[in-house]
Write a protein that binds this DNA or RNA. Structure first.
Lengths: 198, 198
DNA sequence: CGCAGTATAGACCGAACGGTATAAACAAGG
DNA sequence: CCTTGTTTATACCGTTCGGTCTATACTGCG
């Protein structure tokens, strides 16, 4: 093995991620990916196999570095109220901070779920399911600690919170401005009867 | 004027609508549209000018015949509770009834809002704004008639209801099954404190 | 019939698509 | 040096893209 590798494969995946995230699978052309990664065609096909496989890798990386990382950070707070609040606010902040208004890569892909290969579908479904489970755990703990109202179903309310997060991500791509997005967060908070914090 | 027209232009728009609705603007090819409408290339370009203009016409038709028609029907009930309930349930039913899982044409387009021409953007923004206004009116009337809790903001809660509707449409495209979608409706109902009806 | 205007079918355009292949340049181990 | 395997750059493949154009068939009016 006289040579190992010259370019940073993980960095290339990261750059390709932004291309796919912004344009989606179909609209992202090979040329876009070559420009975004700085690779040339041969290296890209040699390193990743093709467009589909590269897309799957970028989505997995996004899921790992965005969703999983955020959920882990929030669970570590050991404060269910702050965790719920934190997730929704992070959703809004991410939407507002991105001048390209790319939204959430997972949800963008979920919107196109029909024509995705099975491995991609699995990442999306699993990611959404884990966000829902995160909300459910937050609600259960919050109820046990008497921080949240106890007359609601954690399972069902978790779905509602995920739903609001989805709406923030979709409407945050141009249809709703900051104030409206923050209103959605406040309304979601009302579902679990949190006191109005910042 | 020795001839008027041979094909039904409105029917062609309707068939093109389903093509764009299913595939989106970019992924719908001219060939798809020709097959869907039964027209040939010359007629299509002669009658509509091009892909973009045809897309705008199909979206306007969708907005007119789906959103406006549903809202008018529900407003005519003069029953704010049934109207809110009816909208959310209709959203679920539409999602479930469509084997192609196309979702809502307006919301699909809203998800791509960035690279839409101005006229298309206007239809989307206006459509969403009117759904929100519909919810707001329902809540205001419901409060005046003591059917809904009076300690909530009609304006803000209307945004939340629209948000849940958006989530139903997005997650209804494969990520969520019937039961989960109905849970979202029930949770939305909880936002305005409706009694649990079917 | 002859004229005007439309529908049809399909050729044709340049460009871009995803993907493969080929060439030379290059780096490290033997 | 020589081999091995990767880097680049580019040519090339067949297909499809949105869009134009032409030639022909057809319909209704005068």
């Amino acid at each position: 093995m006289p040579w190992v590798k010259s370019f940073d494969e993980e960095q290339a995946v990261d750059q390709a991620m932004h291309v796919f995230w912004k344009k989606g699978f179909d609209s992202a052309s090979i040329t876009d990916l070559l420009q975004g990664t700085g690779l040339n065609k041969g290296s890209l096909y040699n390193a990743f196999g093709g467009k589909r496989q590269l897309f799957a890798r970028t989505l997995e990386k996004y899921d790992r570095e965005h969703r999983q990382r955020l959920l882990a950070k929030l669970e570590a707070l050991d404060d269910p109220v702050a965790a719920i609040d934190g997730f929704l606010n992070a959703t809004v902040e991410s939407s507002l901070a991105d001048p390209e208004r790319k939204g959430c890569f997972l949800i963008n892909t979920a919107h196109d779920l029909e024509n995705q290969p099975e491995d991609v579908r699995a990442v999306v479904i699993n990611g959404l399911r884990e966000i829902e489970a995160f909300f459910r755990r937050c609600i259960e703990v919050g109820q046990a600690r008497k921080l949240l109202r106890c007359d609601i179903s954690p399972q069902d309310t978790a779905k509602a919170l995920l739903g609001v997060a989805v709406a923030i991500r979709v409407l945050g791509r141009g249809a709703y401005a900051e104030e409206a997005l923050r209103t959605l967060v406040a309304e979601a908070r009302r579902l679990v009867q949190l006191p109005g914090s910042s």
